[in-house]
Computed example of a mutant assay.
Amino acid sequence: MKVNRRKFIKRLLIVAASVEAIFLLKDGVSKVDTSSSKDLFNAGRVDSFEKNKLYPFSTGQFFLKRYEDGGFLALSVKCTHLGCIINTNSKSGGFNCPCHASQFNQFGEVLSAPATRPLDIFPITIENGEIWVDTKKPVKRSNFSKSQLSYA
């Protein structure tokens, strides 16, 4: 059977499109929500965090703060104004946005605009002395509440 250039290219494109379609279908089917502890970020043991200290987790994209009363809060590193990565402010114990000068207190509440709401937080689970942070589910909030802290 003799195949000319036009038929060859046409068949090649059909094969390539078919292979791509198979991968797209396979990827779509495999994205079923199977949340488990594998999806959670292991921050470490509770007793390895000192009170009144802030611990940055660049791989998890959050700051873990342990407060004086022993409560933990996982704060997002993204400013709620435009998503810039925030810096810590060692003088105030809070956070600064280098892009547009928003400032946040130690609980992530807005001290100065243009940000209009507090930093997002991530749910924390403490099991067997280990701290697990769910970085897949940021929680938007309008203010700080003591109920947002997690205790061992």
Rank of each mutant, 00 (worst) to 15 (best):
L25N: 03
L75T: 12
N128P: 00
K51A: 08
P118N: 02
N128F: 04
F107E: 08
N89C: 12
N143H: 11
P98Y: 01
R5E: 06
F57M: 07
N89H: 09
F122I: 09
F122D: 05
S18H: 04
S112P: 00
P56E: 13
V133R: 01
I121C: 12
L111T: 00
V133L: 01
P138T: 11
F63P: 02
F95R: 05
L82Q: 12
H100Y: 11
N42Q: 08
S36A: 09
G71V: 15
N87D: 15
R117Q: 14
R11P: 01
N89W: 13
Y67P: 02
I121S: 09
S76L: 12
K26H: 08
C99W: 00
P123T: 10
K7F: 00
R117A: 15
I9G: 10
D69Y: 04
L54T: 06
P118L: 00
A21D: 06
R141L: 10
N96D: 00
G83M: 12
N89G: 08
G108R: 03
T135K: 02
F41A: 02
S150N: 10
S37Q: 06
I86C: 02
P98T: 01
K38S: 07
S35D: 08
A113E: 13
F95T: 03
Y55N: 10
Y55A: 12
K65Q: 12
A74R: 03
C84F: 01
P118D: 04
I22Y: 06
Q106D: 12
K38N: 06
G70F: 10
L13K: 10
Q148I: 15
C99Y: 02
P114G: 06
N42F: 11
H81Y: 09
N52M: 14
L73C: 07
S18T: 15
D69L: 15
S58M: 08
L111N: 02
G71F: 07
F41V: 09
D120K: 05
V29A: 14
N52L: 15
G70Q: 10
V110R: 04
D120I: 09
L12W: 01
F57L: 07
D39A: 09
S76H: 03
E127R: 13
I131A: 01
D33V: 11
V77K: 11
C79K: 06
Q106R: 13
L73Q: 06
L54P: 00
Y67A: 09
S18I: 15
Q148S: 14
F144E: 06
H100L: 13
L25F: 08
Y67F: 15
E20D: 07
S35C: 05
L73T: 10
K26R: 09
H81K: 07
R117F: 05
S35R: 13
F63H: 07
W132C: 04
D39S: 09
I14L: 13
F104K: 04
G129C: 01
F72E: 08
A115I: 02
S112R: 08
F63D: 09
T135Y: 00
I86N: 01
